[in-house]
Nucleic acid binder design. Structure first.
Length: 668
RNA sequence: GUCCCCGUAGCUCAAUUGGAUAGAGCGUCGGCCUCCGGAGCCGAAGGUUAGAGGUUCGAAUCCUCUCGGGGAUACCA
């Protein structure tokens, strides 16, 4: 099996190397003769799950059989007889109820490998109709320190933005930070009453975080004390009711059983709430200082809300404090983003839209979309019980109003075609109402999409917290990741006869492995399921992890280094692509599927489909190593061909990881 | 109460959105090799896809009900 490599493609002559698209192009004219709706049937051409059924399969004969009222096998035979795929496939086979199985010719795979050998995009073609897509992600509240909850939005949003950009879309990443909300009133109040002047001088951001936590704690303390008697009463009532029910009913019928069950659950919930309220109260009362502060600031909740509304009303002193606090908060955020290598084109927080909110509400009312209801201004969307509140009884606007103003701005100023919100799935109702409102309000509403994701859980199956029950700060999380990655890096290098890494190298590699591990663990889960945060699995050197993938890359680099061969020289050389073994063929085909992986991710914004490709590629690579020696290849051509496969696999892995925001190291 | 999501191997997750015999990793057990980076490769065990009906050539996936878990639910963002 031997095929001459095509002449190098120039950068200008972009070509397509997407097997699925190619096959669909071949099927299209045939299917168009049979039906008006060829496109939906073309979707049914897909990679085979089982290699026994070839490389790809077309499942369109069965549904077509129903429409045309003919046996599906007969239709499949007809499609096959009219299909022109002789240059790329072995003769197609019809199997089962009417599956058409397609096996690619080795020669064609080899030719395609030759075509993409010099291509940095591995044959992934930029989209023909680029759109302007705003990706709204991360969006922390500035006065509060970032925590593990912000990680998913940040990592998933960044990966999606990178891939959209790679695919050729115009992308604007926008960090819609919370820089105008109630938390600012809280730190203003805290600053006025509790600031530690020395701490403020040396570590302003840390001091602001402390002030926020303090005010929050005191506020919750008073709220807890206030609600405690009510909860106790409820609990007693429930317990009494349950007892009554148990005495009344000798014979349990179904509904009574259910009632009791519901009651027990309510009791358990109340007990839990009572416990956590009590813990909050105890935390304050066990410290003399906090006890005093609580006594002196009984009205803290109302007063800090007042600070917020003063800020919004333009009070010069509060405004000055805000101006002073904000840059320091942004700096702290930037530190985290720098470490994660995440950038935003825009950081337009809520404050940027403040002046437009009154206009938004007025316009909604004029258009009859918003109405007064119980003193608040609301938009009601059919089919939703909950209102979309754009102005509260006290006259303040809500995040609903801000989000509407933001959409309008993005359409007006950015000419955005599409907006993606990478936000926790718990906010899906908000977005449903937001999008429905925007659709009715704007003349040319953009296409909006809530890219939702689940909660980060601990190993106990509950939301990830520290042992004391606090949320985990993001910076300490990143520190721990790097710290845990270091022994893994050390162990690998120490095993060598001659260690390759300097102290500085090791630090850098630990950074890459640790931070990559955190990102990869998040991204390799289907985004809408909750996922369990587990250090050991995250940094494992086996299995579907960043470390394993980074290792696969470094291993190839090591082979080239040991053989004294420059990788770029291999990609640029002209020589035949040879695929004599099953392992070489499988690896080659897998490499050609890179562009499918990019398409799959973007079809529904699911980065985990890229990790699937990466993991399968690494698997193909390992099997290839086992079966095919590069160094001891029988002929120079074969060796060169194998080097080319190695180089392409390495570049595929590096590119795939980089689209997920994950780095690689040539030596690790 | 209403609405939304979920339930797949011991554990963590997939399953190309209705396709063929439900797949990986970890863990367990058993093999391989003087192995270019073994962080490897091959194999085994492990499943009534929570349960019951239904739709059709075909269901983990769609519909109905039951059980179990989570979330949202009028002025926090």
């Amino acid at each position: 099996m031997l095929t001459a490599r095509c002449p190098r493609q120039t950068a200008e002559s972009l070509f397509q190397m997407n097997i699925l698209s190619e096959l669909r192009d071949r099927f299209r004219p045939v299917l168009e003769q049979l039906t008006d709706d060829a496109e939906s049937l073309l979707e049914m051409i897909r990679p085979s799950q089982d290699p026994r059924f070839g490389d790809y399969q077309a499942n369109c004969a069965m549904p077509l059989g129903r429409v045309l009222k003919k046996p599906p096998r007969e239709i499949a035979e007809r499609i096959v007889s009219e299909l022109n795929v002789g240059d790329l496939c072995e003769p197609p086979e019809v199997a089962g109820p009417g599956f058409i199985n397609l096996k690619l010719k080795d020669a064609w795979i080899a030719k395609c490998i030759g075509d993409i050998a010099g291509d940095d995009r591995l044959g992934s073609e930029p989209v023909k109709n680029p759109r302007h897509i705003v990706v709204d992600f991360s969006s922390p509240n500035v006065a509060k320190p970032m925590h593990v909850g912000h990680l998913r939005s940040t990592v998933i949003g960044d990966a999606i933005a990178r891939m959209l950009r790679f695919a050729g879309h115009q992308v604007t990443t926008d960090n819609h930070i919370g820089d105008w909300g109630t938390q600012f009133g809280m730190i203003i109040y805290g600053y006025r009453h509790f600031v530690d002047a020395d701490a403020w001088q040396t570590d302003p951001v840390g001091e602001l975080a402390r002030l926020y936590r303090l005010v929050n704690q005191l506020t919750e303390y008073h709220a807890a004390r206030e609600s405690l008697p009510g909860i106790r009463k409820q609990l007693e009532d429930r317990r009494a009711a349950l007892q009554q029910l148990e005495m009344d009913s000798q014979a349990d019928d179904g509904s009574r059983k259910k009632q009791k069950k519901a009651m027990r659950r309510q009791i358990a919930e109340l007990e839990e709430r009572l416990q956590s309220l009590q813990a909050r109260i105890d935390a304050v009362e066990s410290s003399a200082e906090l006890r005093n502060q609580a006594r002196e600031h009984t009205d803290i909740a109302r007063l800090s809300r007042l600070e917020t509304s003063r800020l919004h009303a333009g009070d010069p002193e509060n405004r000055a404090l805000w101006e002073e606090f904000l840059p320091k908060c942004l700096e702290a955020l930037q530190r985290v983003y720098d470490r994660l290598q995440i950038t935003f084109d825009l950081t337009r927080g809520e404050s940027a839209y403040h002046d437009e909110l009154a206009g938004v509400v007025a316009e909604l009312k004029d258009r009859g979309l918003a109405v007064d209801s119980d003193g608040a201004v609301c938009v009601f969307i059919d089919g939703n019980e909950a209102p979309f509140i754009v102005q509260k009884t006290d006259g303040a606007f809500t995040y609903a109003t801000t989000d509407l103003a933001t959409i309008a701005w993005r359409v007006r100023e950015l000419q955005a075609d599409e907006i993606l919100y990478v936000v926790d799935s718990r906010q899906s109702e908000h977005f449903r109402l937001l999008f429905a409102t925007a659709d009715r309000w704007l003349e040319q509403p953009p296409s909006c999409r809530h890219v939702a994701f689940g909660t980060v859980m601990g190993r106990d199956g509950r939301p990830y917290k520290t042992r004391s029950g606090d949320v985990v700060g993001l910076e300490s999380l990143l520190d721990e990741a790097v710290q845990r990655a270091r022994p893994v890096v050390d162990a690998n290098d120490d095993e060598r006869d001659e260690p390759l890494l300097t102290e500085e190298d090791r630090r850098r590699v630990a950074d890459i492995v640790g931070l990559g591990g955190i990102k990869y663990a998040d991204l390799h889960h289907n985004r809408d399921s909750d996922y369990v945060f587990d250090w050991d699995r995250m940094l494992a050197t086996t299995g579907n992890t960043a470390a394993y993938m980074q290792y696969a890359f470094a291993r190839i680099c090591g082979i080239f280094r040991r053989l004294g061969i420059d990788r770029s020289a291999v990609a640029a050389s002209d020589g035949p692509v040879l695929l004599p073994t099953a392992e070489e063929r499988t690896l080659a085909l897998q490499i050609l599927r890179f562009s499918e992986a990019v398409d799959d991710v973007l079809a529904d914004y699911r980065p985990h489909l890229m990790t699937v490709w990466l993991f399968e590629t690494a698997g193909c690579l390992s099997r290839f190593y086992g079966a095919c020696s590069v160094r001891d290849a029988e002929t120079p051509d074969l060796r060169n061909s194998r080097l080319l496969l190695c180089d392409l696999a390495a570049r595929g892995i590096r590119t795939g990881l980089s689209l997920l925001g994950i780095e690689t190291a040539e030596v690790m």
